[in-house]
Design a protein around this nucleic acid. Structure first.
Lengths: 230, 230
DNA sequence: CGCGGCTTTGATGTTCATCAAGTAAAGTGG
DNA sequence: CCACTTTACTTGATGAACATCAAAGCCGCG
């Protein structure tokens, strides 16, 4: 954790997303108790198993949502960008976090006491309805992505994830992969070695240019074909 | 579809689950527009792609939640029993269903016009909060189960699903498998042949007794061991 | 500098999908 | 009710996809 301060809600994108139907006074009251924290790459924002006492929202940066089992093996559930979840899931269902969240790059989150949010939801149904919509969309997307990945094999999964980063996260055919090869493997449910091997193949086949984490998509159509069925 | 009627909400389990914080009058008003439908085994309750206009809840029976891709291949997302979802997911996020739902055995659902429910949520935050809790829990469970299955291999996945039916659905070590071998395969992301082969192995190893769909778990500890790591 | 973690490649074996072929069960029309 | 078709189930043989093991280079960090 880097930096702690009160934030100004008027300029925050979060406001439009969540507080559309909330009285300005109430937004103001929330704002006063709001805290921002900035995490460096690699730092853990949420630890699975911890008690949920806050409503946490990603303002900037990039995070991974993951789980670690008793043998220390991790599985990545999703990549989260601003305007995406963070602690949005689980928050209303249970007492403790089901997932861990950590920063893939420097990330700033906004933290609100959970009871403040549930109180607000309890007496402002339109606000609650908005949160419900957001929650539904988030978990639907995660599940659909799981299904999408599950029906492909190695090469298709890798192409899929590369395209996801290119299109959904960075909006560019050139970007720095924000995850390690090992994390890539944990995301698609394959081994690190096979992720590396396949990336090398894609380079040899002139689909990608790769230097370490830096990736450039050279043959987008072919990559899409492989993602579809390859 | 079999049978259409108005239902009496006072005896319905749904009432406690969803309408805990709702005025009796409002519950009554909902009740008047409520419709029950009974579906036979194999009938489709919800079709992915259809417009969402109703809030649908499973009163009795057993259903599968699934998706079919453009090549006609299906993937099963979850098995739903009463007090579980049905149309709970997607409902608030989008205009059309993302998943299909069909009956694995004779099932009765309760149908409420969606706008009635969202109107109620919009002016009754406690009700909305309750629905949020339920939604969170449902999608959390689906995602956690996906992760659980993904980290196992064939034998472990099969053991896992058998145990799930035994413990979560039927509460018995003897039960009739409510899905075909093909559906079993679609649920765990493997081929039909390998599901059959593995079930046959489990029979030879005297873990299970199998006659067609009828299953008896003979060696529970061993099955659990295989599910954990096998 | 040396240690540990990440990356890379190759060789090997296991796991799983695919193909084929046959039996059983279940629905369909005369 | 029986021939007929279709769908589900089953087993074996084969090859493809993938994990595992091993070895070495690289990089950051104390």
């Amino acid at each position: 954790m880097d930096h702690v301060s009160l934030c100004e809600c008027d300029n925050c994108d979060l406001k439009d997303l969540f507080f559309g139907f909330v009285d300005p006074e109430e937004v103001d009251s929330m704002c006063k108790t709001r805290v921002e924290k900035t995490y460096q790459k690699g730092e853990e924002i949420i630890m699975a198993g911890n008690l949920i006492s806050d409503f946490i929202y990603l303002k900037s940066g990039l995070v991974k949502l993951f789980r670690t089992d008793s043998h220390g093996k991790s599985q990545i559930i999703a990549i989260g960008k601003p305007m995406d979840f963070v602690s949005l899931m689980s928050v209303f269902s249970d007492e403790e976090y089901k997932y861990s969240v950590s920063a893939l790059e420097q990330s700033t989150v906004c933290i609100i006491e959970l009871s403040k949010v549930t109180d607000l939801a309890a007496h402002n149904g339109k606000f609650a309805l908005g949160v419900m919509r957001k929650m539904s969309r988030i978990s639907d997307n995660i599940i659909l992505d799981f299904l999408e990945i599950r029906k492909k094999q190695l090469r298709g999964r890798i192409a899929h994830v590369i395209l996801m980063f290119s299109k959904d996260v960075f909006n560019s055919s050139v970007f720095d992969l924000p995850i390690s090869r090992k994390e890539f493997a944990e995301f698609i449910g394959m081994t690190t070695e096979n992720v590396i091997r396949t990336l090398s193949e894609f380079r040899k086949d002139k689909l990608l240019r790769i230097y370490g984490k830096s990736i450039e998509i050279v043959n987008m159509e072919m990559l899409e074909r492989i993602s579809e069925h390859g």
